[in-house]
């Protein structure tokens, strides 16, 4: 498998990111600390800032996507203390002291090997925009139900909208991952 050459400027720009805004001087800011993918992080933000924006703009975690901004599409799904949550609906204040896992957390773990590999092999990702949220929903499912039926998979993924795949291959990818892990995912 090869990585497609992406535009150099775009890649560079992405890594050089963070559009710091004027609001940093604002006296309404609070310091919030939480665990992000196993590391403690601290941010100075407005307490009502959306967790989605904090993850992306303050912490450079661009894997979490915005699709609707109203909790319908699930593209911004992450795990907060092992629960699946839409970050577009979460004021950042609520995650103080909590444990967050995003798509970037999957690096190196066996979840990565199983779900990421299965999504590629089964073509469970097409345009890829719903995929990070979809995979987080799948991680949540397999952590709570290691051997889900097709119906349980469809039920568990129903909060995540995909416009490309028709879900057939997403269901297959989750089944494949579950089989590969053999019920041992955690």
């Amino acid at each position: 498998m090869k990585k497609v050459k992406s535009d150099k400027l775009a890649t560079k720009a992405k890594s050089a990111t963070k559009a710091k805004s004027a609001k940093k001087k604002d006296s309404n800011l609070v310091s919030i600390n939480f665990s992000l993918n196993g590391k403690q992080v601290g941010v100075r933000v407005h307490p009502m800032d959306r967790l989605l924006d904090v993850l992306r703009d303050e912490l450079g975690h661009f894997g979490t996507k915005e699709g609707c901004g109203e909790g319908e599409c699930g593209a911004c799904s992450v795990l907060i203390d092992d629960e699946l949550v839409n970050t577009c609906l979460v004021p950042v204040l609520q995650v103080s002291g909590r444990k967050i896992r995003t798509i970037e957390a999957l690096k190196g773990g066996k979840e990565l090997a199983a779900l990421q590999n299965a999504f590629v092999v089964q073509n469970g990702t097409q345009c890829g925009f719903c995929t990070p949220g979809m995979i987080m929903a799948a991680v949540h499912l397999l952590e709570t139900n290691a051997q889900p039926s097709e119906e349980q998979i469809r039920e568990a993924m129903a909060g995540n909208l995909c416009r490309c795949t028709g879900y057939v291959k997403i269901v297959k990818a989750v089944q494949m991952a579950a089989e590969e892990i053999g019920g041992g995912l955690l």
Partner: peptide, 23 residues
């Protein structure tokens, strides 16, 4: 053949318009 840009897509690394920022 597996989707050639599959790996960056499943690991959240692909750069979409909203993910691009410049100084």
């Amino acid at each position: 053949l597996n989707r050639v840009e599959g790996l960056p897509k499943v690991s959240g690394k692909s750069c979409y318009a909203a993910d691009m920022n410049v100084p």
